[in-house]
Nucleic acid binder design. Structure first.
Length: 575
DNA sequence: GCCGTTTTCGGCCCGACTGTTTTCAGTCG
C-alpha cells in the first residue's frame, strides 16, 4: 500500500474525489501531478528522507507530510475522511466514458446512484433524463459506456497499438496518398502501454475524416468533426484522428504528443518569453503574431530549446537539458550490433540455430548469442551441463560456416530460489556468455528476492541479468525487489542489466533503466527471441532505452564484437 | 496544494466536440 504505486493511487483517488466535490482546480492539479511524479519515480519513496521528498518539484510541505504519514502508518486520515463523504464505488463511475466529476456528483446527489449496477438500471428505465443537462442521448451513451467498460481491458501493449496505428495509417493513405499521417500521443513517446491511439494528419480534408470512420474495424464512431474524430475499434481500442493545416503541423505534433507535464512546462516557458503556444502555433501574446509552428524543431528553437526527442518528453529534466544543450545523443536501432538473448529448438524456440542466425543477420546484426534455457526450466526442455556443452559445440560449428554474423554460445541460466545457479561453474565457464534469469519462486519476499539476485550477481560466471524484475505488462507485477542494492552490485562487478524487448516484458522498464544508468550499470538490449521474426522487436527495447536517456555508450551490444567480448564481466580484468 | 531575481499572495495551459441549456457546461485529451 505504501510503495510508490500505492501512494500514487491514493493521490489519484483524492484528486478524483476533490473533483467530485468541486474543489479548487489547482489543488486538484497538485494531487494529479503528485500522483504522476510518485507513480513514475524509480527510487522507492519510502526510502527517501523528509528533505529528499520535500525537494522533489511539485511536492510541497503538505504533500510531503501526507507521503510521510502514508509510509509510516500505511493510512492517511485526510483520505479516509474524504472517502466518508461518498459511496466507495463512486470512483468506478468516473472510469466510464462520458462521466466526469460533475455527472458523478449529480447522479449520486439527485438519484442516490452509488454503483454501476444502479446506474445501469436507472438508465435503462429512463430515469436519468429528468436530470438537468441529461437527455435520452446521454442515457444511451452511458448504457453503451457501461457495456464497453465490462469488456475493455483499458490499456494496450505498445506493439499492439503500433500495429493498429500502422494498419489505420495505410487505410487513410489509400484515400489521401499525399497527406502526412503519423502517430502522436503516448504511442509516439514510446510508452510501454497506450490507453488509446492518436494520429495526426497534416493538411487533410473532410473526406479523410469520412474515410477514417469507415475503417473496417470501427465498431462505433464516438465523434466526428472537422478537426477531430474518434472511433472505437472492435477489441476495445479507441483511436483519435486530428487534422491540422501545414503551418500548424509542428505545433500540433508537439501539442498532442505531450506528455501533459512536458507541455505545461513548455507553455510556461513560452509565457515567460511573452509567447503563447497552442496546437496552431507559437504566437506573440502582445499582438497575436505567428512566430513558429510548421515544425516541432521550429517551435522548440523559438523557445531557446534544442529539439526534444518524443521519448524524453516526460518533464524529467529534458527541458533544462534542451535549454543548456545537454540533451543526450540517444541510442538508435542502427547502433545495435548484436543480440544477446535468443532461443532455439534445443529448448523452447521455434527455429533451429541456422535459421535464427540467418534471421539475425538479415536484421542487420553482426553477432547473436544463442542462450537456451537451463535444466530447471523442465517444461521448456532446459539443458543440463552435458547438453549445454554439446549445444555450445554445435553453435560454434554453425557459426564457423556463416558469413556476416558470429554466434556466441551462451545460456539463459536459471537463478534458483536460493540464488545459486542452475548449472555447475565448470560448465558455465566453457561458454561465451551467461544470462542469468529468475523463472521460479516469484512469490518470495523482498528480502529473499533481493538476496537471491545479489548472490547471482556475485557469481563470476554471470555476465547479464535477464528481465531483471520479472514483470509481465498488464498481467503480472514485478517481483518484490530492492533495485538499488542490486544495481550497485552490478555496477561494482560489471554485470550488465538487460532491457528485454518483448512487448509484454520491456524489463528493465524505462525508469528502472534510467536509475540503473545513473548508478553506473551497463545495459544490454536483447530480444529474447523464440522465433526468427522476433528480431524486429529490438525497436521496442531501443525505445525503452531512449526513454531511459541511454546513449550508445551505455549499451554493451553497440560495441563491435571484440570490444563487446572484452566488456563482458567474465573477461574484465579490473575486478 | 505549489511556487517565488517582479511575488509569502495571487497566480497556476488550452481548445474541440457533444448534447441540450438558444449561449453554455461538461468531458476529454
Amino acid at each position: 500500500m505504501t510503495d510508490n504505486i500505492g501512494i500514487a493511487r491514493v493521490f489519484s483517488d483524492i484528486r478524483d474525489l476533490l473533483e467530485i466535490k468541486g474543489a479548487n482546480p489547482f489543488k486538484i492539479r497538485a494531487y494529479r501531478n503528485a500522483a504522476d511524479i510518485v507513480g513514475h519515480m524509480a527510487e522507492s519513496i519510502a526510502d527517501l528522507t523528509d528533505a529528499d521528498i520535500r525537494s522533489i518539484p511539485g511536492i510541497g510541505k503538505d504533500l510531503a507530510a501526507k507521503i510521510r504519514e502514508l509510509v509510516d502508518t500505511e493510512a492517511l486520515v485526510y483520505f479516509d475522511e474524504l472517502r466518508q463523504e461518498f459511496p466507495a464505488s463512486i470512483l468506478d463511475m468516473l472510469r466510464l466514458q462520458g462521466v466526469g466529476p460533475k455527472t458523478a456528483e449529480i447522479l449520486y446527489a439527485e438519484l442516490g446512484i452509488e454503483t454501476l449496477e444502479e446506474l445501469e438500471s436507472d438508465a435503462t428505465e429512463g430515469r436519468l433524463r429528468q436530470l438537468k443537462g441529461m437527455g435520452a442521448k446521454k442515457e444511451e451513451l452511458l448504457l453503451r459506456s457501461l457495456a464497453e467498460h465490462r469488456t475493455r481491458v483499458g490499456r494496450h501493449l505498445i506493439g499492439r497499438a503500433d500495429a493498429i496505428a500502422t494498419r489505420l495509417t495505410e487505410h487513410l493513405r489509400t484515400a489521401a496518398p499525399d497527406v502526412t499521417i503519423f502517430p502522436i500521443g503516448s504511442l509516439r513517446r514510446g510508452c510501454e502501454t497506450c490507453g488509446d491511439i492518436d494520429l495526426l494528419a497534416v493538411g487533410a480534408t473532410d473526406a479523410l475524416m469520412s474515410h477514417f470512420v469507415r475503417f473496417p474495424d470501427v465498431e462505433r464512431v464516438l465523434g466526428q468533426g472537422r478537426t477531430k474524430s474518434s472511433v472505437l475499434l472492435r477489441g476495445g481500442v479507441q483511436v483519435d484522428l486530428r487534422v491540422v493545416a501545414s503551418e500548424s503541423a509542428g505545433a500540433a505534433a508537439q501539442y498532442f504528443t505531450g506528455s501533459k507535464a512536458h507541455n505545461i512546462a513548455v507553455r510556461d516557458l513560452a509565457l515567460q518569453r511573452g509567447l503563447k503556444l497552442n496546437e496552431y502555433g507559437l504566437f506573440r501574446v502582445a499582438d497575436g503574431e505567428y512566430v513558429a509552428g510548421a515544425s516541432e524543431a521550429d517551435v522548440y528553437a523559438a523557445l531557446g530549446l534544442a529539439y526534444v526527442p518524443p521519448e524524453l518528453r516526460k518533464h524529467r529534466g529534458e527541458i533544462e537539458a534542451a535549454a543548456n544543450g545537454n540533451l543526450p545523443r540517444l541510442i538508435e536501432r542502427s547502433d545495435l550490433r548484436g543480440d544477446l538473448h535468443s532461443h532455439t529448438t534445443a529448448t523452447d524456440g521455434k527455429a533451429d540455430v541456422e535459421t535464427m542466425a540467418t534471421a539475425a543477420r538479415a536484421a542487420g546484426l553482426e553477432y547473436l548469442a544463442v542462450t537456451d534455457h537451463s535444466q530447471a526450466l523442465a517444461m521448456a526442455n532446459g539443458l543440463d551441463e552435458r547438453r549445454a556443452l554439446d549445444h555450445a559445440k554445435r553453435i560454434r560449428e554453425v557459426s564457423s560456416t556463416l558469413e556476416g554474423i558470429t554466434l556466441l554460445a551462451g545460456i539463459e541460466c536459471d537463478i534458483r530460489a536460493d540464488g545459486t545457479l542452475d548449472l555447475a561453474d565448470d560448465c558455465l565457464t566453457e561458454l561465451d556468455l551467461v544470462v542469468a534469469s529468475v523463472h521460479s519462486a516469484f512469490g518470495q519476499d523482498e528480502h529473499q528476492m533481493t538476496d537471491r539476485l545479489l548472490r547471482a550477481i556475485e557469481s563470476p560466471m554471470v555476465d547479464i541479468i535477464g528481465h531483471p524484475t520479472g514483470r509481465l505488462l498488464l498481467r503480472r507485477a514485478p517481483y518484490k525487489l530492492k533495485l538499488e542494492p542490486v544495481f550497485d552490485a552490478a555496477a561494482r562487478t560489471g554485470v550488465a542489466m538487460e532491457i528485454n524487448s518483448q512487448i509484454h516484458h520491456l524489463d528493465l522498464s524505462d525508469s528502472h533503466a534510467r536509475l540503473a544508468r545513473e548508478r553506473g550499470v551497463k545495459l544490454v538490449i536483447s530480444t529474447d527471441a523464440h522465433a526468427p521474426t522476433a528480431f524486429n522487436l529490438l525497436r521496442w527495447g531501443v525505445t525503452t532505452a531512449r526513454r531511459a536517456w541511454a546513449e550508445p555508450g551505455d549499451v554493451l551490444n553497440t560495441l563491435p564484437l571484440d570490444a563487446f567480448r572484452a566488456s563482458l564481466r567474465r573477461h574484465r580484468v579490473d575486478e
